[in-house]
Simulated scan of single mutants.
Amino acid sequence: MAVLHLVRHGESAWNLAGRVQGQSAEAGSLTARGLRQAAETAELLVRRPVSAIFSSDLPRARATADVIARALGLPVREDPALREQHLGHLEGRRFTDRLGDGTVQDEIDRLWREPWRRPEGGESIADLYERIHTTLDRYAAHDGELVLVAHGGPVRVATTSADPRLREPVPRVAVGNASVTTLGRSRCC
């Protein structure tokens, strides 16, 4: 059984600004606080027998992975499958911006309650769930402990007991910056 340490990236510039990041290339990298968070997470992981580090290719995740990699003395391999949910037209907007009868935050909350809905130009929670679980099954084929640096959405769908492909709402639980969620995962076949 593989042990997968899912790490959410440290605080980013758009986290601090209250903007929707998704897969936007403009979302930027880590703040000074985010770099400190990544270093604290690296200190936790250095005690583990980690054999490899994989990271989303988005700058905020890659910067977090680089800090962890330096502490563990391992290279980082990028995997675009670990990216955040593509949020289409919502990306770059502030959570408090007006949108229709509510706010951008209201629309994001609705996506989690109605996981088959796709934001214009983006992917649904069900799409994200399928992508992340397929990716985690692939990593389960590895032996030992792996660090997977990703984002809040992927960590949420990796740990939910709901199945959004069956139109079950997925709780939008808090996932802290640079937090570590450890999963034991068996090979599927």
Rank of each mutant, 00 (worst) to 15 (best):
L166K: 06
G152I: 08
S56C: 13
L44K: 13
C189L: 14
V180H: 00
R47P: 14
G28S: 05
H9V: 10
V147P: 03
E26S: 13
R98S: 08
A69K: 03
R36W: 13
P115E: 03
D57N: 08
R47M: 14
E40F: 11
W112C: 04
T182Y: 02
L4W: 05
T160V: 09
S56K: 04
A13M: 14
L87Y: 03
V147N: 02
D79R: 12
L35Y: 15
A17V: 04
P80Q: 06
I108Q: 00
V155T: 08
V155S: 08
L90K: 00
R77L: 15
A162I: 10
A42Q: 10
R98M: 05
L99F: 00
R19N: 02
L87W: 01
W112A: 08
S186P: 14
L30M: 02
R93V: 00
R118A: 02
P171T: 02
P164A: 09
F54A: 13
T31H: 01
F54N: 11
A17Q: 09
T182K: 00
P115H: 02
C189A: 12
W14M: 09
L74T: 06
A81F: 09
V7H: 11
A27T: 07
D127T: 03
I132K: 05
A2K: 09
R62H: 15
A126C: 08
A32S: 12
A150H: 14
H9E: 11
G34L: 10
V173P: 09
P115L: 04
H9G: 10
R83N: 11
T159W: 10
A178G: 00
Q37I: 10
A158G: 12
E145N: 11
A17I: 02
R118G: 07
D163M: 07
G73R: 00
A69S: 09
H86T: 09
L30K: 00
L16V: 10
A52T: 12
Q21W: 02
Q85R: 12
E91A: 00
R93Q: 01
V104R: 01
R138L: 15
T31Y: 04
V76Q: 08
S179W: 05
H151Y: 07
G152M: 12
M1F: 13
D127L: 03
L136W: 06
L87A: 01
V155H: 13
E91N: 00
